[in-house]
Design a protein around this nucleic acid. Sequence first.
DNA 1: TAAAGAAAAATTGCATACAGTTTTTATGTT
DNA 2: AACATAAAAACTGTATGCAATTTTTCTTTA
Lengths: 226, 226
Amino acid sequence: MPHTLRQKIADLVINGELKPGDRLDEHSLADRFGVSRTPIREAIRQLGASGLIEIRPRRSAVVRSFDRAELSEAFEAMGEIEALCASLAAVRMNEAERLKLRALMAASQDVSLRNDRPAALEMDFEFHGLLHDGARNRMLKTVAEETRLRITPYSAALFMMEGYNADLERPHQQHAAIADAVLAGQGKEAARLMREHIAQALISLQQFFEDTQSRSDAPKVKGEVR
Amino acid sequence: MPHTLRQKIADLVINGELKPGDRLDEHSLADRFGVSRTPIREAIRQLGASGLIEIRPRRSAVVRSFDRAELSEAFEAMGEIEALCASLAAVRMNEAERLKLRALMAASQDVSLRNDRPAALEMDFEFHGLLHDGARNRMLKTVAEETRLRITPYSAALFMMEGYNADLERPHQQHAAIADAVLAGQGKEAARLMREHIAQALISLQQFFEDTQSRSDAPKVKGEVR
DNA sequence: TAAAGAAAAATTGCATACAGTTTTTATGTT
DNA sequence: AACATAAAAACTGTATGCAATTTTTCTTTA
């Protein structure tokens, strides 16, 4: 998989080097990746269309930021989309995929006990990816992944911030319950648990931002949550 | 609303001048819109990211085409997304929006009786747009509109082809039933009717393609349905 | 010291040019 | 006439340059 320029720039956002509100300077990016501004601009436009960054005429593109209301709307939408994936996956996943899911849950338990946050983030990604594939619907998979991509900076924060989401146990248990329902072919129940899981994630995130923002010393990092 | 280049090119697809599988020649488009290739390329990349067209390295971009399976997956996904919009709109629309919906349904009945297909296509667009707004969720609205955009060439065909979807009465009646449920605040029922409505649309579309493709004289227009 | 305005620097938007591929047309062979 | 091959044309990918706009810095004034 030869990392495209588009992916390289997206990675800057995904790994947190660029945060919501940060500007994307075409010249710096061009220097950094050893190309001219032309392909950089094309990549930025693509990321703009996928909603990861915001394009403003005549002004630098910035990493997209969500205010409180938008964040809660995004999570509501994502909750429903992921719930749909889960309910379809419960009925449509094949044996190989079910085996993979079981293996992932075992590995994930291990990781959550060791409190390995980067690994947990990775497994969260894989867990949802398995359900996106298991739903056997390419359009739905595209939609689900785009939605996740858009809120990437926020969901990553959720996993990485020590103290919030104090241990990784609860999200892991939620995943485990969802996996059980999926493997048992109980679509309705899987969907219900998924909605709950995503709703919980939003609450943790809101909690986190409330705490970090109310500290008046914090220099109100631009773009965090407006 | 100063039509952007991106919108101008999208319009070529939406109004049917460019069909699925057709190539987008950068030079011709540049000449046509009186600009250089640079902004054309940027617009094409954006449309590629939104999924209306397909970008192939070193080869011309083409209007995206769906095979049978992809089309049915797209409609399944769209059905669920639209159903979600409808069920939320039933609970969240305000009085002004409900009035607009009632007005639209009256106008739509008129149009369907006169068998005015272009107008019916327009009203279909507005009907779903009202529900997207009524759901009070910007992320969901974005997702719903992107999904609709992707299958635009196919849903437009559905409305325009005489003989198929023989009269406009049935889709109008379906819209009316959905609107009634929404206005009565019955989200579950609105969702159910919406799913049915979209499923019907897929069936009509498949019917249409089956008939047009089985005629062996038809030169197998590239990109229609593979 | 703070605010307002002007000058300088930085940055985006777009046209153009050219190298490298792909596509089309022309040519030759069985 | 059909197929394979070669030459020509067309097209995409990217670098570069310049005009227009935005952002930053510097200067002036209250």
